[in-house]
């Protein structure tokens, strides 16, 4: 189908400052319970270095002072084309729409958590008990949303099901962008149609070489990461910055 969209996102790590705004925005619009984060910001060694993270704490750079480097990797559902979670779900509760968005049918999930084990990106959270919230009223989008009759968003996910990033399917279907893209204060998130070769996301993927996370696993995510280019100051003192 020529006009079939395939939603994709490119996260520009050279712009990302690890501020967690996208994560908190996600938490807000989706009324995520305390302790649940569909979207999290990982402190990552810059792409070109083979270094392991320097610490289990965030914001700690790799390397040794003053030759250090630091980058961030906001990580939510990667909306894989060959999604392990979709493959392992025994009841088809996790599924991928034609537009590439991977969703969970909160009415079908049996809570076996096989998808949690199968996801290489660690982006799925299970409702271990009743949701705990900071406020006693529901915040965020506020109402159920169904895609093809399947309940893919509800402000309070029932106990015993798995939940995760929906790429704000309810907003996409209303012609808007995902909330994290809109709220990112660094302009680090680009969203668009990967099937359209002229879209900004397509250009970033095809021309700028935006990369997939754990590409070697062949999950083929529709979320990509753009890393920073080094800039030469012309005197051999080039500083490696984020993602350099």
């Amino acid at each position: 189908m020529a006009d079939q969209k395939r939603w994709g996102m490119v996260i520009d790590q050279s712009r990302c400052i690890g501020c967690w705004t996208c994560a908190v925005a996600c938490k807000e619009i989706n009324n995520q319970p305390l302790g649940y984060w569909w979207n999290r910001v990982l402190t990552a060694p810059p792409a070109s270095s083979a270094k392991a993270p320097a610490s289990e704490n965030v914001d700690v750079p790799a390397g040794e002072f003053p030759n250090v480097s630091l980058a961030y990797q906001p990580t939510a559902c990667q909306h894989c084309q060959d999604a392990p979670c979709v493959k392992v779900c025994p009841v088809g509760a996790t599924f991928r729409r034609d537009d590439g968005v991977v969703l969970i049918d909160y009415e079908r999930c049996i809570g076996c958590r096989y998808c949690v084990a199968a996801c290489p990106y660690g982006v799925r959270v299970f409702n271990w008990g009743d949701a705990q919230h900071a406020d006693d009223f529901t915040v965020g989008y506020g109402e159920d949303y169904r895609s093809d009759g399947r309940l893919v968003f509800t402000p309070e996910r029932p106990r015993g099901v798995v939940e995760k990033c929906t790429m704000c399917a309810e907003l996409l279907d209303a012609g808007q962008e995902p909330f994290c893209v809109e709220q990112c204060p660094a302009g680090a998130r680009v969203f668009g149609d990967l099937n359209d070769p002229n879209s900004e996301v397509s250009k970033l993927v095809n021309e700028e070489g935006a990369k997939r996370l754990l590409d070697e696993l062949g999950t083929k995510p529709d979320v990509f990461y753009e890393t920073a280019a080094r800039r030469d100051l012309g005197d051999g003192s080039t500083q490696s910055g984020s993602g350099a």
């Binding site: 050279s14 400052i17 914001d59 003053p66 800039r231 100051l233 080039t238 500083q239 984020s242």
Partner: peptide
């Protein structure tokens, strides 16, 4: 534009700099 950051700490700001001067 080129970006210079002067800071004794390697902050997320420093990390984005073309030249970081601690």
């Amino acid at each position: 534009a080129k970006l210079v950051v002067v800071d004794p700490r390697f902050t997320p700001t420093s990390a984005a700099a073309d030249l970081w001067l601690p």
